[in-house]
Design a protein around this nucleic acid. Sequence first.
DNA 1: TCTGGGGTCCTAGGACCC
DNA 2: TCTGGGGTCCTAGGACCC
Length: 429
Amino acid sequence: MIQPLIALVDCNNFYVSCERVFRPDLLYQPVAVLSNNDGCIVARSQEVKDLGIKMATPVHQIKHLIKRHQIHLFSSNYTLYADLSSRVMQSLEAYSPHLEVYSIDESFLDLTGLCSHTSSRRNSIDYALQIKAEVFQNTGIPVCVGLAPTKTLAKLANYAAKKWHKTGGVLDLSDTLRRDKLLPLVPVNEVWGVGKQTTKRLHLMGIFTAHDLASQSVATIQSHFNIVLARTVQELNGIACLDLESIAPDKQQIVCSRSFKRRLTDEKELIGALTCFAQTAAEKLRHQESVAGSISVSIRTNPLSQTDAQYQRSGQIQLKQPTNDTRHIVRIAKRLLKEIFKLGYRYQKCSLQLGHIQPETQRQQMDLFSVSEQSSDSSTLMNTVDHINRRFPKAIAISAAGINNDWQTPVNYLSPRYTTDWDSLPGVT
DNA sequence: TCTGGGGTCCTAGGACCC
DNA sequence: TCTGGGGTCCTAGGACCC
């Protein structure tokens, strides 16, 4: 039987690399990309990591470092990142018939039988090096490749390929001898699926490295923790428990939420924000040809504020009849907001959540006594709106969404949409 | 003054049923 | 004093991921 071979291809400092593709002058400069609100650091170049700046650090805490080291900042340019991501994934498709796009910057590829026919490790390494070179050639994005018989080990191989430069950005952990050498060097919190809380408890049990965890009996871990971590132990030992999912399942919930640039106190302004969220969420819902059976809305003040009075509440409604009509969702959201809104608080964040999502085609039969809230021409109208908005973004919107939404996030360091907007195409002089 | 957003999965516990 | 047992469904909350 052929040993399975999974590759994890992960882009290096993805958002930063995207910015650098069009700004080669920044290649060896410290570069960071900021979160939606220009509030936190969400991507760092190696130079920034070397300064000891951690992921999700609030910008205001490191102003002095930004100034002293002249760190180049960028607001998140998701349009650009999404486009480059799809180009990376397109390049990868040539290398395996089974590909799972795991996130915006990484994919699992099933290479079983594709490059192990000589059973020499060199062969798989060559294949991975080829993948790496082609992605860079096609997109300008550097990647690292981890190879192993399970997803968890492939993640680990990728971690090591990134950390130890002499691997050349490619590492194969198919060989158990090699695993025995590497796993004792990897802190247990670097294992995929082991987070902060689990790490704390593992430390108390004297488990500090990936090797320590792999040596535990599955039953022990299952009894002290849960099935998820028990699977991780098996995966670390080369026994696959997690399948490659080449077909992305439909989303089970869709969330839209934002922190506001400034605190909102007026119900009208919250309605405006909520209406925007409802439009975005409903559009996503229709894009996967689904309807939602429940809607919930939540609002809160800033929990980190020492001076503001705190308030947080959410409300949910199960719909008699599932919908994907923006107008209907907006109506319900407004009604929910009315129920939970309290005057006199400074609201920092608001979110809208669609749940109980099901395929449109399986929309349940109405019961005998309910009156349809979704008119028969609804889907025609929504399709038309989506169609127009795809060509002319935000051309059609619900009026309550407002035009001057100054609660929206500041983008002080936004780069152009180099690849998706004619007027932003980089020129050559 | 300023601290991201969008997801998934699992578990415990309550309600309810027979 | 004793106060069934087993099953399902739903929800809230925790933990994790990128």
